[in-house]
Design a protein around this nucleic acid. Sequence first.
DNA 1: AACGTTATCGGGAACGTTCCCGGATAAGCT
DNA 2: AGCTTATCCGGGAACGTTCCCGATAACGTT
Lengths: 339, 339
Amino acid sequence: MDNITIKDIGKALNLSTSTVSRALRDSYEINPETKRLVLDYAEKMHYRPNPIALSLKENRSLSIGVIVPEIANNYFSQAINGIEAAAYDRGYHVVIFQSQESYEREVEKVEHLAARRVDGLLMSLSSNTIDISHLKTLGERGLPLVFFDRIPAEIETHKVVADNFHGAFQATAHLLETGRRRIAHITSQAGLSITKERLSGYLAALEQYGVAFDENLVKYCSYTLDEVQSNLDALFALPNPPDAFMTAADRLAASYYAGLKKRHIDIPEKVAFVGFSNLNVAELLSPPMSTVVLPAFQMGHRAAVLLLDLIEKKPANPVFRTESLASELFIRESSQPRK
Amino acid sequence: MDNITIKDIGKALNLSTSTVSRALRDSYEINPETKRLVLDYAEKMHYRPNPIALSLKENRSLSIGVIVPEIANNYFSQAINGIEAAAYDRGYHVVIFQSQESYEREVEKVEHLAARRVDGLLMSLSSNTIDISHLKTLGERGLPLVFFDRIPAEIETHKVVADNFHGAFQATAHLLETGRRRIAHITSQAGLSITKERLSGYLAALEQYGVAFDENLVKYCSYTLDEVQSNLDALFALPNPPDAFMTAADRLAASYYAGLKKRHIDIPEKVAFVGFSNLNVAELLSPPMSTVVLPAFQMGHRAAVLLLDLIEKKPANPVFRTESLASELFIRESSQPRK
DNA sequence: AACGTTATCGGGAACGTTCCCGGATAAGCT
DNA sequence: AGCTTATCCGGGAACGTTCCCGATAACGTT
């Protein structure tokens, strides 16, 4: 682990560290012969510059931090791939952390990344994050910050989201058009931006088709299994039980699909189903699941590009915008009309 | 971005940096009053020690690096969760990188992590990695290194794997027991350790049941879509086409399941199917897929524990071992006997 | 002949932290 | 009174790098 340093090279070659440094950076004020000498020796000894020393000096790290709720989730891992693609093109490294949907972990990761002098931060909020002061102070301290997917309303910066309103509207409208009237909406924690937008889309579609809203049909979820059971219990105990499900988020789609099948509720005969999901095996499910697919890769990519621009161009007073990328509805068997 | 330093505190309080440093570390040789003064001021100004400066000085970072082929893969993201759990318990951070199954990227990430002074490295090889000299020199330079899942034979260190032999044996035996005789084995690149082990298990089962091996039934895959088509073409063009599939790896299971369904080949009536897969929706598939589930979380966890022991205990000449964790076969509809 | 140029290099500070070495003061002891 | 000892604190080097500021020749220019 005893890595060779610029100082070692200098000592071995009877040169000052300055000279070695300049030779390595190919400075014009170094004798070509000296350069060769240094370069050869460095090569031979496998010299690698120490990025930590550089970070300390330059106060930057050529890397950006990413914090997502979890990576064991197609949606976020696809987003991360988009981020990496963009960062790679511009010579930045990507440091990935997960908040595990925990507020405390999120705060911790944010602090650690900031202390580690990442040049910028890309975030999607944990579902349990209500207080966002840890992110506000970060922005005020001048760390470039871009949000994607789960964004806070209270912070002014670039944000990239999927068109959740339209996605939910489309999905709901599709269910209404195919004759459903009692559409259960299973969604994430009420506080999240995405939750509100999807609910709005759902409501707008109901209104357009003249269907009354029943708040008993909306269930806000965390991610526990027993919750699935109790929510389904409650829904099917209604005097007027649901004849369709519109679920937000990957995980919810899968677990409620499983929950319904466990109860032997026929899809789509008894209830239709449309899930927000980036699961790539949606069409292999039984029955193939209709899905609203979010542009995860593009979101990550776009968010990273915005962040890198912020980092490199350092605009004095940037015009922050919230970009919205189109989602896409794939209609499959789970939402076919009743025979 | 102008973070407060120990020097700033010293200046503000008319103390030397040494004193401030010691006060913050709660040293016994500092007056309690002075400590309070420093601590209060530090708190008020949101002082955060600079881990970069520490890394430079101590030549360590309290973080471990992880390189996996890709994170958009249940298997690896579950393993990462195991790693994070173990690291978190011992106060280490986890820095995640993906090689994207590319040798060049792998080398690059390894170099970057080493230069970044991670205290140890956890690796699963990319499928295109043949030359592992970049890892060998790392080990020789004294960086603690533990492999999991896709391990190299040529490097002596701790390794954690799933029992691929037994998993493949079990899956194949199950198919043989339920009457299948022409079992196609779809697997990863031939060079990988996991590929060889699974092939051995497959062969051992064939032998035990007295079924002749036909090399035409084994297909080594990268991960392109057209490959699925051409491999299926070749397999079903055989004079004696397969009546069962045993696939290695998450991605292969999904894509060949899709490929078979696309051709309207009835599962399990025409061909039975068992896939190595950590996909959590396996039982929601049509038909529910029989799977060999690998202990991904445990593998990650165990590998991390071994690495952290290596880092902290620094044994002079450690006894390296390769640990093998049991996989589990879940029999579902896709491998039922013919009616 | 005095001076500016050019080419080539070294010294040393700085980034934020810890830690070794020392130093001052006051109290306690013989 | 003089010694040790305890208590509390500062100076400065070191980690690896870059960069500003000089320094020294050799050379050409008026």
